[in-house]
Computed example of a mutant assay.
Amino acid sequence: MKTKQNVVIKGTKDGLTLHLNDKCSYDELLEELKEKMDAVNDQESGSMIKVTVQAGNRYLSEEHTEEIKDLIRKRKNLEVDSVKSNVLTMEEAVRWKEENEIVSHSGRIRSGQVLEVPGDLLLIGDVNPGGTVMAGGNIFIMGALKGVAHAGCYGNNEAVVVAAKMMPSQLRISQYLNRAPDRYEEEESVETECAYIDDSNQIVVDRLQVLRHLRPDISTFKGGHHSG
């Protein structure tokens, strides 16, 4: 009799969660997983059941992940919702670091030029008409924004755009778009302003001071990487 189960099955409101032992060998794990899935398959009938796999601190290669998914999918009425692991791959770790980094850039973004960064962007300079800045996170411009700014460009609705002079030809945050109000063509803004998505999914331009309450996390400045 085994003293420790390598696969523990728990029922949830969404289906089944399989907790995999991360200390045993992969072959042992696979063998017990097959047995458990056969047992589940004998009992279950009717509608499809979603299965979530929790691998704990075990690193699963793409090949192993697919093998586990296939093993579960072969049983009727079972479909894999997700396979989760606490262990990051090197690629995931690098991407996480980039997305949580502030990249600073000094200089003017001219017409036809596009500057894109995976995390937050701190631009020390202007964005000319026809120029574009894009960031996976927030955009902070210590100058005039007269071109296009697209914050949260990979789908982050919490991202903001801050500019010392807010006169964009177009503002985008995540998938939302806001063409510049006419007033920007007539007068320059005299104070630093911020743009964010409000509760009704509209891009709103407001005084910088509101950010402290709307996005309190922004005040915890973590430092970052500098690029010329």
Rank of each mutant, 00 (worst) to 15 (best):
E62I: 08
R73T: 14
A180C: 11
V94Q: 12
V53I: 13
S85V: 09
Y196C: 06
G137V: 05
V51T: 03
L214N: 03
L123Y: 00
E187G: 02
G224Q: 07
M167N: 13
R212I: 00
T132A: 07
E92Y: 05
M142L: 10
G56A: 09
K84Y: 12
M167W: 03
R108M: 07
P118V: 05
V80L: 12
E191H: 11
D81L: 14
V162N: 08
Y196A: 04
E79H: 10
D206I: 02
E191K: 10
I109R: 06
A180H: 06
Q5C: 07
Q113R: 15
K74F: 12
E28K: 08
E63R: 14
T3H: 10
K146H: 08
T3K: 13
L20C: 09
K23N: 13
H19N: 14
V114A: 02
D126K: 02
Y154H: 08
L33S: 07
S169P: 04
P168F: 11
G15C: 08
L123I: 03
E158P: 00
S106N: 11
K13H: 09
E191N: 11
I218E: 00
I124P: 00
L121K: 04
V161W: 06
E193P: 00
D199T: 09
M134Q: 10
V148E: 04
G56Y: 11
V204Q: 09
K222E: 10
L60V: 04
L71H: 03
L60E: 04
V117F: 01
V148K: 07
C24P: 00
N128C: 10
A135G: 05
K4N: 14
C194W: 03
V87K: 12
K4T: 15
S169F: 00
L20E: 02
E185C: 07
S47A: 06
A164I: 01
L33T: 11
G15W: 08
L30Y: 14
S47V: 04
Y154F: 14
I124Y: 00
I102S: 08
E101R: 10
D38R: 15
T52E: 10
D27Y: 03
S61M: 03
E158L: 13
K23F: 03
R58V: 01
A55E: 07
